[in-house]
């Protein structure tokens, strides 16, 4: 068992994501992070539990609400925060931002800003790794809002048809922006998987250990040639769809409902499973790590506008400028 899969390791990852998002929201309010973020607060157990079942050479694709996935897979929180702040020292050199964080060295193929768009990308990467003779797997995250996108269902078909080593993780956080699954989804998430012959399970997405246990089985199946598995991790989005809501305050859920939804907190669930002293030590270490991450982000240089289209082409082809 890796350190991340120990009870204290799962807690450490949950605490890291929780603290990271708190600081990121503050930096949005301060104007340091432009464009806002989609906080994953409340959903940390999904990221922590799934990534603890993966090897460093396995890969993931993520979503617009992807900070937790990227951190849990092993990206450096300091470079992640610098990316959110648009600095040259960020994971993507300030080119991607919150919705596109990628760290190929850590197996993060990237977050994606189009709902459902990364699911076939994960399937294709999984297929290629198997073709190369490796026993690596890919894991795709997507939300409850994505399961009615055609491309996601088409990906289920391809993955099952070709027994691709991919794990399909649906984070059902109760809301697609303002819309509830009951208002957008005929049938069920696991029923969609069943239609393609994909084994599927509903998992307690507030419990890191439950997510780890379910993902471990899915990863083993994928690695051993058994093809895809779908896990519907039922969780709850504690914060806004996007930090824009902190000022605009659209009304699609009541305060009472939020209070009920946040009653089960992955931080407390996993925190209760480790000695108090261990928890206190992890909390202190995490706070120090994240304070340093913020310092690193703020100290990073802003990118030079003359480099705006660097990397546009892998071959180095240079486009003409906009004004002649």
């Amino acid at each position: 068992m890796t350190a991340a899969a120990e009870p204290s390791g799962l807690y450490r990852t949950v605490a890291l994501i929780r603290g990271f998002e708190q600081r990121a929201v503050e930096l949005v309010r301060d104007g340091v992070i432009r464009g806002g973020i989609h906080p994953c607060t409340g959903q940390e157990a999904v990221a922590a539990g799934t990534c603890a079942a993966l090897r460093p050479d396995d890969v993931i694709t993520s979503t617009h609400r992807g900070h937790g996935h990227v951190l849990a897979k092993g990206a450096d929180p300091a470079r992640m925060m610098a990316e959110l702040a648009g600095r040259s020292t960020g994971l993507n050199q300030g080119r991607g931002g919150s919705m596109h964080a990628a760290d190929f060295a850590a197996g993060v193929l990237g977050a994606d800003a189009i709902v459902g768009a990364a699911v076939p990308i994960a399937a294709g990467a999984a297929w290629a790794m198997r073709q190369a003779g490796a026993d690596r797997v890919a894991l795709a995250y997507f939300g409850d809002g994505a399961v009615s996108q055609g491309v996601v269902l088409e990906s289920f078909n391809l993955a099952a048809l070709w027994r691709v080593p991919v794990v399909l993780v649906c984070e059902n956080n109760g809301f697609a922006t303002s819309m509830r699954p009951a208002d957008t989804m005929a049938g069920t998430v696991v029923g969609r998987a069943a239609a393609f012959g994909i084994p599927a399970a509903v998992v307690d997405g507030m419990d890191p250990q439950a997510v780890l246990d379910a993902t471990t089985g899915a990863v083993e199946r994928a690695r051993s040639g058994g093809g895809p598995t779908l896990l519907e991790c039922v969780t709850y989005r504690f914060d806004a769809h996007h930090t824009w809501e902190h000022t605009a305050r659209p009304r699609y859920r009541t305060d009472e409902e939020v209070a009920a939804g946040t009653a089960r907190d992955p931080l407390e669930i996993q925190g209760a499973r480790i000695p108090a002293a261990t928890r206190a030590t992890i909390d202190a270490e995490t706070a120090e790590l994240l304070d340093e991450a913020v310092r690193f982000a703020l100290a990073g240089p802003h990118p030079d506008p003359a480099t705006a289209l660097d990397h546009l082409y892998a071959t180095g082809l240079r486009p003409r400028a906009g004004a002649l």
Partner: peptide, 22 residues
Amino acid sequence: RVTRPDGAVLPFARELDLACQP
């Protein structure tokens, strides 16, 4: 003409985003 550059993909950082717009 004053335009975005050829085939521009707008980068995230504010300075880079603005550098691609007329």
